[in-house]
Amino acid sequence: MNRVLLGCTALMVLTLAGCSSSTATKGPKPDQPYEDAMDTGKSVYEIGQASQAEAQYRTAMDRALMRDDAAGIHEAGFNLATVLLAQDQPRKALQSLSTTEAALSLRNFSDTSDLAVIRAAALYRLHDTVFASQAVDRALQSSDMGIRERALYLSGLIAADLRQDTVLDRRVNDLAGFHTTSATVDQQELTARLNLLRRQPELAYSGALSVVKSRRDALDYRGMRRALTLAADAAEAAGHLPQATALRQEEQISKQVAVKQAGENGGAAGDAPAPGSVPAKVTVQVHGTPADQSGLGAGD
Rank of each mutant, 00 (worst) to 15 (best):
T129A: 04
S142P: 10
R150H: 01
R119T: 15
G146F: 03
S133E: 14
R138L: 07
A151E: 09
R125D: 12
N173K: 13
D174N: 14
D144C: 04
L168W: 01
R163V: 07
D186S: 15
L123V: 05
Q134T: 06
S182H: 05
T180W: 00
D161E: 13
A135E: 15
I158Q: 09
S182T: 11
V172C: 11
H179D: 13
A120E: 02
T184R: 04
A176M: 00
D169L: 08
A120N: 09
D128S: 03
A122C: 12
R119V: 13
L123K: 08
T166K: 11
D144I: 11
R138W: 00
R150V: 09
R170P: 00
S133V: 10
D161P: 00
D137I: 01
T184A: 07
L154G: 10
G146I: 08
L162W: 08
R138P: 00
I147M: 10
D174A: 15
G177S: 09
G177Y: 08
V172R: 02
L123M: 11
H127I: 01
S143A: 15
S133H: 04
A159P: 00
Q134L: 13
A120P: 12
Q141L: 05
L154T: 12
S142V: 04
D128M: 12
R138G: 02
A139N: 12
D128H: 06
N173W: 01
A121Y: 03
Y153K: 05
R150W: 05
I158H: 11
L175Q: 02
T181N: 02
I147E: 08
D161S: 08
A183K: 04
D169V: 00
R171C: 01
V167R: 10
T180I: 00
A135S: 15
G146P: 07
T180E: 02
V172A: 04
R138F: 06
T180N: 03
V117M: 15
L157I: 14
D144N: 10
Y124D: 12
G177V: 02
D169T: 04
V136Y: 13
L168E: 00
D137A: 14
Q164R: 14
L168T: 06
